[in-house]
């Protein structure tokens, strides 16, 4: 049988939601600043933070068995390796 779960307070979810809304505002503002190359980086970075928030809190990864975080990390790492290899290939053609 699995371990008894810790109940996540309603407030935590609402707080995370506020955070996500704020970050959406930040990403729109950042896009309007026309930072050039930096704006792509900013957009991806903010999206990554938002995605992590949803995964960790809404999707309960933070409170689950470590196994689930490792699985998620493996998928992200796989994607990162594919991205890096592809772009290495493209830039040396």
């Amino acid at each position: 049988m699995d371990k008894p779960k810790t109940l996540v307070p309603y407030g935590t979810y609402v707080l995370v939601w506020f955070g996500l809304l704020a970050l959406t505002g930040v990403t729109i503002t950042a896009a309007n600043l026309h930072l050039g190359q930096l704006s792509v980086l900013a957009a991806i970075l903010i999206a990554a933070i938002k995605g992590t928030l949803v995964l960790m809190i809404f999707m309960n990864l933070k409170y689950e068995d470590r196994l689930f975080r490792i699985m998620m990390l493996l998928a992200v790492a796989t994607l990162a390796v594919i991205m890096v290899l592809t772009f290495t290939d493209i830039s040396f053609r």
Partner: peptide, 18 residues
Amino acid sequence: WHLVDVIWIFLFPLFYLI
């Protein structure tokens, strides 16, 4: 449902904000 949300979080800036 949250997965759908996470994907949109990436789709939005990469299509609408460039």
